[in-house]
């Protein structure tokens, strides 16, 4: 596991890349060296104690050479709103890198990444790493409408084949990104060795179903409300099947998204809502 640090890191640049979605570049000499794709940082959004708790945000890109990391985040409430208002040059109080990160198997040749909405955030770093490891990478991005599809160009520049799906039909594939995935697997016959995905729960659930059906290993990045971010408060749990499968009934335990995750084997997650 990487060393966890509590640092003040400078905002080097900030840009609204889509309505209410911001990309920020942060000077993080130590954290960038430790960071792995799929990990996150726990951010104090403002300078005072409102909001009180930190907010978890994925590491979007890791630039070890320059000692920089990027975050991509969407305004959904007070914390993310205040974060978007922080000025270039400000120091952000962050803890990280946190969580386990994605696990790319050495033997995998073909990799599929699927991001729903802001769920693309952790996938760019993963895409960069996969391409560095000479994998064939395809990326699917789904969003409600065209304006909310972010990062398409960044994935393409890295050398991934990218398809987009807008639910409202305004761009790319008309329909759900999960339908697009099914078409690629069944009609096109492109079978990845691993799927990595992050996004809204119903999407993740559907992708896991598809992956199980096609016997493809699938890792999902989950979200839960967090307190400490370091495994101490047990505030951030999700339901994970326990190893003992003797009985018919699915047995589960609560695992911490912040330290046991945020990345879990899709087949292990219990989706009950």
């Amino acid at each position: 596991m990487s060393t966890i640090l509590n640092k003040k890191i400078k905002i080097l640049s900030k840009k609204e890349v889509a309505p209410n979605i911001y990309l920020a570049k942060l000077k993080a000499p130590e954290i960038s060296q430790e960071a792995l794709p799929g990990q996150f940082i726990h951010i104090k959004c403002s300078k005072d104690n409102y909001p009180l708790l930190r907010r978890p945000i994925s590491i979007h890109r890791i630039d070890k050479e320059k000692g920089e990391i990027y975050i991509l985040f969407q305004i959904v409430g007070e914390g993310t709103k205040l974060l978007s208002q922080r000025a270039v040059g400000d120091d952000l109080d962050v803890i990280g890198p946190l969580g386990n990160g994605f696990n790319i198997y050495p033997e995998s040749k073909k990799i599929m990444m699927i991001g729903g909405g802001i769920g693309v955030a952790p996938l760019l770093a993963l895409c960069e790493e996969s391409i560095r490891q000479d994998k064939e990478v395809r990326v699917l991005i789904g969003a409600l409408k065209k304006e909310l599809i972010v990062g398409e160009e960044n994935f393409r520049i890295l050398g991934a084949k990218i398809d987009v799906a807008a639910d409202d039909g305004s761009y790319g594939y008309k329909g759900l990104v999960t339908d697009l995935l099914e078409e690629i697997i069944t009609k096109e016959g492109w079978l990845p060795d691993q799927i990595f995905t992050c996004g809204p729960k119903p999407m993740l659930k559907k992708i896991v179903e598809i992956s199980l059906h096609s016997h493809i290993d699938c890792q999902v990045s989950l979200e839960e409300r967090m307190g400490c971010g370091i495994g101490a408060c047990l505030g951030c749990v999700c339901k994970i099947k326990t190893k003992d499968k003797k009985e018919d009934k699915v047995k589960y335990e609560f695992k911490r998204v912040c330290i046991d995750g945020p990345v879990f084997e899709g087949s292990e997650v219990v989706w009950d809502d």
Binding site: L53, E224, R225, C233, L234, G235, V237, K239, F254
Partner: peptide, 11 residues
């Protein structure tokens, strides 16, 4: 003890 289902915390 298993604990309660999520969400478990809210600001």
């Amino acid at each position: 003890k298993k604990g309660n289902p999520p969400p478990r915390i809210i600001e």
